[in-house]
Design a protein around this nucleic acid. Structure first.
Length: 275
DNA sequence: ATGGCTCTGTCACAGAGA
């Protein structure tokens, strides 16, 4: 089975690139993040004439996740139990974390489905913005809540995958210059611990091969030629259960998809495994 | 040098991304 994850930074703007990539790479399952559109606006031309089913969970302007599968798409779940909500108070330029009971808005950041015998989650973890921002606490709580929600499922499922944009660089080797991230989100100890806690449920972070430079980065900022200088980060992760690890054949970052006309700022991470 | 680019919603920008 071939499974991939890709933050496409607008599935509308990226529709031709996503379709082209599906045809070339032929994944059995593709997890998408940052759709930036409602589920009903998911572009049909991405899969027209191709053997994929689509389950999307989106909202108007930001966020949005989807799972595309050609090996079945069953038991679709949008969001997870206890997922924290986030609401900007009227007139407040910043926002505050609210409890799930109070939450008027639960963002479209997680979708689960069973595909060909594998339980799959596509997740888009909140950015965090800054260490002193309320969004940072929201990010940590979001990851903690994800762990609580999926614990039983991870332990009972045979083949299980959580893939997506985690917005966390797990080690200093996962950013091009650790010094550039002093005092920033994505590299802080609490963020790294929150991902490790998820992994401790019995999952393995599949570190992909880099096809160039020896650094398996998955994201490069659009600005200042950072892709061409390989100033990137590994923040898109594929966490898999033991059953998947046992059948793992290959894993790589498809940096070719970061090139060319109108690319996403992320590249797909692809894993190949037998069950 | 805290910028650089790109996206959406809306129509010249603001907000977000990481």
């Amino acid at each position: 089975m071939r499974l991939a994850t890709w933050n496409v930074n607008s599935v509308g703007a990226r529709a031709p690139r996503v379709r082209e990539w599906l045809e070339e790479s032929q994944p059995d399952v593709l997890c998408l993040q940052e759709l930036k559109c409602p589920a009903e606006a998911f572009p049909a031309e991405i899969t027209d004439g191709l053997p994929y089913e689509v389950a999307a969970h989106g909202e108007g302007r930001w966020n949005g996740v989807a799972i595309l599968s050609k090996v079945g798409l069953d038991d679709v779940v949008r969001g997870f139990e206890g997922q924290p909500g986030y609401a900007p108070p009227p007139g407040d330029p910043d926002s505050v974390l609210v409890t799930v009971e109070q939450a008027p808005v639960v963002e479209a950041r997680a979708i689960g489905a069973t595909c060909g015998g594998v339980r799959v989650w596509s997740v888009y973890v909140p950015n965090g913005r800054a260490l002193d921002s309320p969004h940072y606490g929201y990010k940590l709580e979001w990851l903690a809540a994800l762990r609580r929600a999926l614990e039983a499922e991870v332990r009972s499922a045979g083949a299980f995958v959580i893939a997506g944009d985690f917005n966390v660089a797990r080690t200093d080797a996962d950013v091009w210059d650790p010094g550039a991230f002093t005092g920033s989100t994505h590299v802080s100890e609490p963020e790294r611990s929150a991902v490790s806690a998820l992994e401790e449920l019995g999952l393995t972070d599949v570190v992909p091969r880099a096809l160039k430079h020896g650094t398996p980065f998955t994201y490069w900022d659009y600005r200042a030629g950072m892709f061409h200088k390989n100033e990137g980060m590994r923040i898109d992760l594929v966490l898999v259960s033991e059953r998947v690890v046992a059948g793992l054949k290959d894993a790589y970052v498809d940096r070719e998809a970061r090139k060319g006309k109108a690319p996403s700022d992320h590249a797909p991470v692809v894993i190949d495994f037998d069950l």
